[in-house]
Design a protein around this nucleic acid. Structure first.
Lengths: 215, 215
DNA sequence: GTTTGTTTCAAACACCTGTTTGACATCCGC
DNA sequence: GCGGATGTCAAACAGGTGTTTGAAACAAAC
């Protein structure tokens, strides 16, 4: 029997079967590499070595599958950022650069292929994802409020609107460091600037943004 | 007869027939509004009120049609930027903010719906366009060299690599001001920051970037 | 051994995609 | 008038899309 309505037809206490995990991994990797619209259900099941019906059996639809991956990865990222920020607020609450470091570091410094794919998937979702993803990103800004509050605390003399503009531009500078964005920098600098040198990129980015905040 | 090989089967001296122009306009508008992958040939011909075969008759393929729009609009934008830059170099060659103003202004300040759509199309092309578009953008950086040279001239003491990093981040801050990017700013500021107020956005952006350049 | 719930499978479904065809209409130069 | 190039059209093409079906396989429970 199909039970298409349920997302996890298996007993809730038992761990999900390998097939489900393989679908999640395959979908994430393919979307990260090729983009949201370029990946078909058949591409996913081919890589996961699973029958075509498995996607709808386990996730209800292709879209639900991708939304689940997005929700999982976004929560992971926001949790990591919040942890880093809490540490900064505890020790150096007036250090604007340290606050922005907590925001930037988790997306700039990655040390495993799995993490690289997860971040790439998230960025694809932001830009190419279905309307539901975009809407979630647009409205769910709770995790960003923590950073804005921390910045307002560190820069008490700055008008709030001014602070938010600068925070917005800082996010722009951050998000511009994805494949497809930084290639022109490599060409322009004739290879001198290497965005794949993560630590160096992070340093330069934080320098730029801290100056933008006026500190 | 079809003459599928030629892009402009009509006599080259005569102006293109209304049908061709209607296809160009319809394709640009639809892609600007809905994205590269979301628009089908049939969507385009429906809006242009043209038979389905007209796209391939006039442009050879859907992709060629979109590439032609991209090339036209990109050339327009770069020409405008170059004109503004030349004026700045002539009058205030040391004014970093003025140089960046020449780069930003044409994409931030637009005064017609037609122009808004053209800019939106260009941004869609950058992010979602076919590989050929991405490759063109990546390699054709001639128009950016003028700005880098102007900046290097205005900031002779700055190491070139440093300058290029900052230029790169400035482009990131610029490109982040598109629908889909700035919505969170509106939510975060509870409507106080209005990215649709073009002059205000441009001022804040130039403030931020100029500070980022250390001037 | 039978029953029950879960998982897998080949096949098909209905629909959409970009592109092509060949016939028909139109217009211009001669 | 005629011939040939130019434009338009309905129809079909070949292939891809996400999703569904119903039967089979499997495991554990009784």
């Amino acid at each position: 029997m199909n039970c298409g309505e349920q997302n996890t037809p298996g007993s809730v206490t038992r761990e999900p079967p390998p097939a489900k995990l393989r679908i999640l991994a395959a979908a994430e990797q393919l979307v990260a590499e090729q983009g949201f619209d370029a990946v078909s259900t058949r591409d996913i099941v081919a890589r996961a070595q699973v029958n075509i019906a498995a996607v709808n059996y386990y996730f209800g639809s292709k879209q639900s599958l991708l939304l689940e991956i997005f929700a999982t990865r976004a929560a992971e990222l926001n949790r990591e950022r919040a942890t880093l920020l809490a540490r900064v607020i505890d020790k150096r609450p007036d250090d604007v650069r340290a606050i922005m470091h907590a925001l930037f570091q988790p997306t700039i410094l990655w040390n495993s292929e799995e993490r690289r794919l997860a971040l790439r998937f998230l960025n694809r979702a932001r830009r190419e994802g279905p309307l539901e993803v975009r809407e979630t990103i647009r409205t769910d800004v709770r995790h960003l409020y923590r950073f804005v509050d921390a910045l307002a605390n560190a820069l008490p003399q700055m008008p709030h609107e001014e602070l938010l503009w600068r925070f917005h531009f800082a996010l722009g500078a951050l998000h511009h460091n994805q494949p497809g964005d930084y290639e022109r920098l490599i060409v322009l600098s004739d290879g001198a600037c290497r965005p794949d040198d993560q630590q160096r990129l992070l340093d330069h980015l934080l320098d730029f943004v801290a100056r933008g905040f006026g500190v």
